[in-house]
Design a protein around this nucleic acid. Structure first.
Lengths: 194, 194
DNA sequence: CGATTCTTTGAAAACAGTCAATCTGTGTGG
DNA sequence: CCACACAGATTGACTGTTTTCAAAGAATCG
């Protein structure tokens, strides 16, 4: 529902009614069924996508066929592939829906037009990119400095909402371990708490 | 030398002489001796720093005292901590010089002033942040999907200049392995080539 | 040269991955 | 409403990789 995206904007910046309407006029609603792809490896990605409901995952597939989850996107998150968007090259990643989902999408050219005409909009987007950068840096630091158990404990602390909604095997993939390892970590930490 | 930074700008955008002068007028040159800190854990970081010569590393130190290298910065790279810059919180990271180095620095407020007054400058900075984001995402994907050996081979392919300049133990830290493991990987791959 | 730093090597221990079997819960069709 | 199928989670035994600790060997710098 577009209302979710409107709320998101209202919480972050102030636009005039005309500007709000300008944004809305170029937004496209997209619905995805569970397991449906938003983007597949090899596609050329030219959008900015905002999740209003549901949950998606972005992942790569290596030569052995193993999936590696780069990120999850639930309501009020953006998703897509900046690499392909910037370079124009086909994407190395896949995005599919873990739950039935709804998105608000903008083509890149419309999105850039919005950024150029509405400076408050541009500022909001800049701020989001800055925060995403910091989040990624934290994840890199975590991957270097934490043990498997610490990674899991940090994850459930930082993203408790995902634990409920995302299969454990996908959380394992996001954390860079096998589902078996994560399962053993969980029984171990549960034992230690008791 | 400021000339290096001027060249960097010239290669990426076009500024009028007045704009160039405006940038130069707020730039501060900083020299660092090898092993000297640019930033220490707990500092509050309020700059944008560009390396004109030398080499620096950004790293965290965990509870056990182990260092984990988040990144290297050589000439024509930026360095600093966006997390502290955005949040105002003290930084979790350290930056020090691996070689005698020279930087061009801007306070955050001067830097924002430049972005606001010179739109070409702002565009250049936006483009850099976008590219950094993509680079970070690649690194996250690599950390999830590659074996230790693959990580090392990708690294020397992507950053051959670092291999010459940075101690192996620091490359190991950057790649998330111990120096011993990296050393063994190197002798192994050398054997396989022969 | 002497001191320091970095790299290599070895052996043992800790850790995570693989493969296979079993268990659990959910949802669907008969 | 039950039984079955299926996806996901757990467990066990085994293998392989990486870390740890310790010591010896290069390389670099004042």
């Amino acid at each position: 529902m577009y209302e979710t995206f409107q709320q998101y904007i209202n919480n972050r910046t102030t636009l005039t009614d005309a500007e709000k309407e300008q944004v809305r006029s170029v937004a496209v609603i997209k619905k995805l069924r569970k397991r449906q792809y938003l983007m597949q490896e090899g596609d050329s990605w030219k959008y900015h996508a905002f999740v209003t409901s549901g949950c998606l995952r972005t992942y790569s597939v290596d030569e052995k066929g193993n999936e590696h989850i780069i990120g999850f996107s639930i309501e009020n998150w953006w998703c897509g592939d900046r690499e392909s968007l910037l370079s124009g090259e086909p994407t190395r990643f896949n995005i599919d829906a873990i739950e039935d989902s709804e998105l608000v999408m903008f083509t890149n050219s419309n999105f850039e037009m919005l950024c150029q005409t509405i400076s408050a909009f541009k500022q909001m987007i800049d701020s989001i990119l800055n925060k995403s950068f910091v989040t990624q840096q934290s994840r890199i630091n975590a991957s270097l400095s934490q043990t498997a158990e610490e990674k899991y404990l940090s994850f459930i602390k930082k993203y408790p909402e995902f634990v409920q909604r995302v299969p454990q095997s996908m959380i394992a993939s996001y954390l860079g371990m096998t589902p078996e390892t994560l399962s053993r970590i969980r029984t171990q930490t549960a034992r230690n708490r008791a």
